[in-house]
Every structure is written in C-alpha cells, then in structure tokens.
Write a protein that binds this DNA or RNA. Structure first.
Length: 565
RNA sequence: GCGCACAUGAUCUAGUGGUUAUGAUACGAGGUUCCCAACCUCGUUACCCGAGUUCGAGUCUCGGUGUGCGCACCA
C-alpha cells in the first residue's frame, strides 16, 4: 500500500510528537532498542490505563460479566490442548540456492490433502520425496525442515526439573481453564461472561508498522458462554436506527443497522450481533471516528476451522484498514479441547422441559466376584456385559477389544432392571469471544484525534481525545508566576490531583499561549487559568480545548465539573 | 528471514577524509507581557554500536542493532 506523501509526513510528525511528549516510545532505546516492543511513557501510561478502564466499565455494566486475571506464563500442556502449539508452529525450510525461506507445508500443497497437519518428520520425508522447486529460483534443494514457533518459550523451574512453558499468545485460555470457578460463581446458570485485560506475546518474524504489530501487546478479551439450544435474549432494538459499514464475506460492502443485518442472515448469530452492537458503542465512547470504523466478516477459509461466524472491527488510519477487534463465535471448540486433554468436566447442566423416564433393563457385573476373576480386564468385561440385551444368557464368551476371549459365568453377573428419571443433561457451552487489541485501538484513537491546522511554521496541533481517555484531565496555569498567582495555581493543582479520578498538570513557564498549545498537543481537555481576578474572588477561567472558549467559574465548580463521573 | 534505502542534541535537520560539528524548533534560568506557540539576554543537550582502512573517520569498508519500503510471514 503506497500512502500519499502528505499522509506519510503527517504520520512522521505524529510519531515524532508521541515520542517527544512521552506518549509512545520505542522500548529500551538507550540500549539500541528492540523490535516490536514499545513503552507507554509518562503521558501514555495514563492514556492506556484510562482506555482499559473505559473498556472494563463498559463490559461490567452488562451485569453478567466478571473480570479475572491469569498468569502470562502458561504450561506447555495448556497451549497444546488449545491447539496453539500446533497452530503457532510453521515448519520452515530454506532454499540452499537462493536462501529464500518457505513454509514446507505450502510447498507440498499439491502433493498432500492437508500438509498443514503433518508432523515435522512426515513433512521432511515428503519434502525429500517430492523435491518441489523453489518458488523464487526454481532449484529443488532444501535445508532441513525446522519448526518456527511464534510463541515465546520458557521454562518453569530450574534445571532438569523445569517444565516447558510459553508466554501466552492470548488471554482467552485463562477464561477456559478457570471455567469451573466461573460456572460456580454464576450459580451454574448460563449465559455469563468472563474477561481479562492483560499482556499477550507473539514472537513475530518481522514486526512492522509501529504499534500495529508488536511482540508484546495489551489485549482485552471477553468469553461469553451460552447455551446453543436456548434462544438468545438480546434486545437489539436500541441499535435499529444506527447504520454501520459492513463488509460481508460474500458480496459487496453495504451500510445497515446491526439488527437488519442479523435479520437478513448476513450476521449469522444473534449473540455475535449483540457483541458487534455493544462493541460499536464502546468504540464511539472511546473516541473512535465512526466514519473510520467498519465490520468485516471473515471468509470461510479465513476463519479458524471451528468458528461459526467471525467479524472484525477494522479501524482506518495511517496504515489503512487495520483489524482491531475480532468477534468470533467459537462454538464449543475451546472447552471441549481442554475437557479432552484433562478429563475435567467443562460443561453446564440443562434441565429437560419434562424429566425423561429411562428403562434400564440388562446386565452388569457383580464386582465382588468378577473383580478377582478378571482382575485387570474387569473394567472391559463390565462395559461389554452392560452392552448386552436382557435376553443374554450365561455362561457366555465375550471378546474384548484387545482380542482376548473371556468366559463370563453366571456368578459374575447381576440382572439390572429399574426405571430412572433423568432431569436434564450436561452439555458444553458455546462461546462468543470479542477480542480487542488495546494497542491498536489506542493507536487509532491518537490517529483519529490528531489534528493539524495551519501549515509549516504556523502549524498548530490539537489532540481531540475524548475526555474519558485524555491522559491529563486539566492543566492549571498561572497567568504569571508572581503576585501570588503561582501560589494559588499550585493550590488548585494540588486540590485537583487530590480528587479521585482527576490528574492535573501545572505549567508556569512561557507565555500563556505557548502553554495552551502544549496542553492542546497532548489533548488536555481544559485549562484552568489563575489571573488577577482569581486573587480577588477565587474564580478561574476554564478554557475548552476544542473551542478555545473561556468561562469564568469558581474553583469549587471547576473541581466539581472535573470530578463528575 | 531476504532485498533496497536510511541512522547527527528532546524534535526536525546541514555537513563529499582535515580548526572548537550547522541551523531551526523545543527545553531550562532571567527579563518583559492582563489569556492563545510574541519579544530580549543567557544556558543545557548529538555524530546508533563494534571492528577495520587512514597521519587523521560524522564522512570510506565490514559486521551488529534499529527505522522505513517491497517480498515472505501475520493464531
């Protein structure tokens, strides 16, 4: 994508300002820097935490969502169960003629139905066998296949007793591995959600585009557990008149309300629609420009194989349209995978409308006799016997799965004949997951808010950040640092900083205009100026960042306005 | 990972092997100023890292690191 020169220059001025003012900086710069790692600086730190607060409050307000926090260091087995060990590994091989690196499975696509699923040794064997030509130079001479895992690996514990582990590539697994506690917390009633804000790690081969592709990043994910057989109760009527841009997997982009798109069958599931609508609200509450937001549906072949529907929120900025949120219906994939790997029950209970009466009529073993007789095979004998109908008669020769034949005598078995009432069943909940890339969202908030006016030497910069995410809430400025104005301004500053949820800065140097400009550049929503009148009657002027308008008010009123929730 | 280009104060930048390395902005101290980057004086800060060539390297060579772009990759 070739961006016009003007927008490249704007991007350079923006990133330069973000560094200079301590919002976003390359990490470890004094040591030469490190690719794909960024710091939020003295101003950016609070920007991030305010964005996270808005995110947290938005979802908690739903009432059926809890916040958890899980370790980033994650045992091998967890990510093996989730499929990440397999999914995050690419098997690479390098052409010895031209040094072009290729994925071994891609080279072998014509020779195997699903080379992605092959193990390293199978891939190596097939590669040696097929000798595919290099797509770059045509030679067929490949280095040994090597796994490139995109997860950072580490070891829990020292020496030979250490356990293999990874830094998590996503926070989601924590919501699945703590599912039993969440289910208990919600008194065993669906639907409910769990979410966490935290760091994720991906050892990207080639991080690019500033904040867009990072090796360590802030993410925020919510897993919403639902009963696939219960109709979703979401009320989408508040969004009926809000049009959004939609790019469906099939056909052209169009604008429609989310309930309409659901009714048309473009959005495939009501809970996905619900989270799209709620996410849209959240994005606007954070200050995203509605014109630079669209929903894009994943094509079939782009979705993970288990996903039932997936929509990204893409935001438009200096790097084009960038995926910032993914809203995916993941079916029962994750809980089922962990259940299989651990044998733990990760299910919910559903009562039948009417209890079912089940006739049990057949045979089982008499443990006291059959146990000693069959010893290690007793378990297998039991399941074979219980599979027999009531008409079976003993002695009877039973063939076990291993091929062994055992003679089951009449004394080994007992007749079973009873009726049972079954009130319901265990099932694996489905899950809808909105996953947010916090850094990418923050980038776009800055990109959308950054406004230049004038040009050249005259250029004026204003960050029109939403007050809920602005890193500094107010700047306190003495008109001059003398005659007691500085003392009074310091008092106002201290009082504001002592007010919960308020952070103010004090700036007494340079002309008043210069100080307004400094505040505007990092998006401080208002400046409170202490002037001569202030000394007489205890008022200050409140200057609005976006309009430049000034209002005189008492210090008490100013504090109250800033402290308002 | 490959290829091309680039790397000089906080930011942007001048500098074709030879004095004390430009300039602007920003920042700090003081002055001035009754509200939008004004002005005056003074001040602080830089050649990405490491080897090499050379009497001498910011400048040339090699390697590393970082940044941008293209290819590849991107749960």
């Amino acid at each position: 994508m070739v961006e016009p020169q003007a927008s490249v220059e704007r991007l350079e001025r923006l990133t330069g300002m973000l560094r200079r003012r301590g919002i976003i900086l390359p990490a470890f710069e004094i040591h030469g820097g490190a690719k794909g790692l960024y710091d939020f600086g003295p101003v950016g730190g609070r920007l991030r935490s305010k964005v996270q607060s808005v995110w947290r409050d938005h979802w908690l307000s739903q009432g059926d969502v809890v916040e958890i926090s899980c370790p980033t260091v994650t045992p091998f087995a967890v990510l093996e169960a989730s499929g990440h060990v397999a999914e995050f590994s690419d098997f690479m091989t390098v052409c010895t003629a031209c040094d072009e690196a290729s994925r071994a499975d891609t080279l072998l696509e014509a020779h195997h139905a699903n080379p992605d699923a092959l193990s390293l040794s199978d891939l190596q064997a097939l590669l040696d066998d097929v000798q595919p030509p290099c797509p770059a130079c045509g030679e067929a001479s490949w280095s040994p296949v090597a796994a490139e895992n995109l997860m950072f690996d580490t070891v829990i514990g020292a020496g030979s007793s250490g356990r293999a582990a990874f830094l998590r590539p996503e926070t989601a697994q924590g919501m699945f591995t703590t599912y039993p506690a969440i289910y208990r917390h919600f008194r065993e009633r669906l639907p409910f959600g769990a979410m966490q804000l935290g760091r994720g790690y991906r050892n990207e081969i080639s991080p690019r585009q500033g904040m867009i592709r990072l090796r360590e990043f802030n993410m925020a994910e919510l897993e919403y557990f639902i009963d696939p057989e219960t109709e979703a109760p979401h009320d989408l009527s508040p969004w009926a008149s809000t049009e959004v841009q939609l790019v469906p997997a099939e056909g052209d982009a169009f604008a429609a309300s989310i309930p309409t798109a659901l009714a048309q069958g473009v959005i495939l599931h009501p809970t996905v629609a619900w989270f799209m609508a709620r996410t849209h609200d959240l994005m606007l509450a954070l200050g995203v420009d509605a014109e630079k937001l669209r929903f894009r549906q994943h094509a079939r072949d782009e979705m993970a194989h288990y996903a039932l529907d997936c929509w990204d929120v893409e935001l438009h900025g200096s790097y084009g349209w960038i995926e910032c949120v993914g809203i995916a219906h993941r079916g029962c994939y994750d809980l089922e995978a962990h259940e299989k790997a651990t044998g733990q029950r990760l299910r919910a209970w559903r009562n039948y409308p009417e209890p079912k009466v089940v006739e049990i009529n057949g045979w089982t073993i008499d443990g006291a006799k059959a146990g000693p007789a069959f010893r290690a095979l007793a378990g297998q004998v039991k399941s074979k016997v219980e599979a027999l109908g009531p008409e079976a008669s003993f002695p009877l020769t039973v063939v076990l799965d291993g091929g062994e034949e055992v003679l089951v005598e009449e004394e080994h078995v007992k007749r079973v004949q009873r009726t049972e009432t079954v009130a319901g069943e265990w099932f694996i909940p489905h899950v809808v997951e909105p996953a947010f890339g916090i850094d990418r969202i923050i980038w776009h908030l800055l990109d959308h808010a950054y406004e230049e006016s004038g040009s050249g030497e005259e250029m004026y910069v204003r960050m029109r950040l939403h007050p809920d995410v602005a890193p500094v809430d107010a700047a306190v400025l003495p008109l001059f640092e003398k005659e007691g104005m500085d003392t009074m301004a310091s008092e106002v500053h201290r009082r504001l900083c002592g007010t919960r949820g308020v952070l103010a800065s004090y700036d007494g140097s340079g002309s008043i205009g210069r100080r307004y400009a400094r505040a505007d550049e990092i998006g401080v929503p208002c400046c409170l100026t202490v002037d001569h009148t202030s000394l007489e009657d205890g008022t200050v002027t409140w200057r609005d960042r976006d309009t430049g308008e000034q209002t005189r008010m008492s210090v008490d009123d100013a504090v109250r306005r800033l402290a308002a929730p």
